[in-house]
């Protein structure tokens, strides 16, 4: 009961700012609205007892990604200070695609036999993730550092060419 109430509140906290993100004429406001939306998603992760993912969600998404998006907006010439229409002339086609996607997802949702047996939670979320990193997913762990390295070098190359 309490869990359902928490889910509904968190869903509202997630969805209301998300609507602002796609409708606001002010780009900075749209970007800032991402933050409460991310925080709502954090709450949903907590409801699923995925505390580690919730922590990452706050640190990376609400902290870093939102800052990066704001910087990108402020770096662009036409991005700041201008009112923006977020809809274009393709409303009919867009609506049709969105409707079709909704029907497809609903069909998927209703047809999938969801397992009703409760899984067992690890005693510690972080330890489970760490253990997985160092045993089964060691290659992914090391490759992620390479991905980070490539993105750093790529960003430096692009940014230095701009100067």
């Amino acid at each position: 009961m309490g869990e359902l109430a928490a889910f509904i509140i968190l869903a509202i906290v997630t969805l209301l700012p998300a609507v602002v993100v796609v409708t606001s004429r002010n780009l900075v406001r749209a970007a800032m609205s991402l933050i409460p939306s991310f925080l709502g998603v954090t709450g949903l992760f907590v409801l699923l007892q995925a505390e580690f993912v919730a922590g990452i969600q706050i640190l990376i998404y609400a902290g870093a990604i939102a800052v990066l998006i704001l910087f990108v907006i402020m770096l662009t010439q036409g991005g700041t200070g201008t009112a923006l229409r977020q809809v274009n002339e393709q409303q009919l086609v867009g609506g049709l695609v969105a409707g079709a996607l909704t029907i497809a997802l609903l069909g998927l949702l209703l047809r999938t036999p969801w397992p009703l047996v409760a899984g067992t939670l690890p005693r510690s979320n972080v330890a489970a993730v760490g253990g997985a990193f160092l045993t089964n997913f060691i290659l992914a762990f090391e490759i992620s550092s390479l991905v980070l390295l490539v993105s750093l070098v790529g960003a430096l190359v692009i940014a230095r060419r701009e100067q």
């Binding site: 580690f52 990452i56 640190l59 990376i60 902290g63 870093a64 990604i65 800052v67 990066l68 910087f71 990108v72 402020m74 770096l75 510690s124 972080v126 330890a127 993730v129 760490g130 253990g131 990193f133 160092l134 762990f141 992620s144 550092s145 980070l148 993105s151 750093l152 960003a155 430096l156 940014a159 701009e162 100067q163």
Partner: peptide, 26 residues
């Protein structure tokens, strides 16, 4: 653009620390 560079470097090393955190726990 320098602000963006600093933000980007910050993000990368933040992600690195987050990867190392579960490692340190186990």
């Amino acid at each position: 653009i320098r602000y963006y560079l600093f933000a980007l470097i910050f993000v990368l090393f933040e992600v690195e620390v987050i990867y190392l955190f579960p490692w340190a726990v186990v």
